[in-house]
Amino acid sequence: MAQNSRYHAESYVAHPVVTTADMRLLFHRASGETHLLADPLPDMLILLGEQPDTIQGLTTRLCARLGVAQDEEAHAVVGHRLDELEAAGLVWRD
């Protein structure tokens, strides 16, 4: 997870999404694949869809959105979750 590269994502509303009690079902039109997302991934996709960002920038915006303090641990978790989203093809780096 390169620290300074910027991550991109399509705008979140471009995806048909169905909310269930525990997860969100997201249909990714570009790949034709369906993903089941647990929090905080939907929030991360919403933020990146609004504006590409580095891990650091995204961590700051995500902590603000969830109303939690930002720390090194949050940064590491966001980095790891970005790897998962990248492997699924939902985010990419320029």
Partner: peptide, 16 residues
């Protein structure tokens, strides 16, 4: 239509 989505996606992943 499904084939075309698959084809475009394979091209995009290879481009990346």
């Amino acid at each position: 239509a499904f084939d075309h989505v698959q084809a475009r996606w394979e091209v995009e992943l290879t481009r990346r």
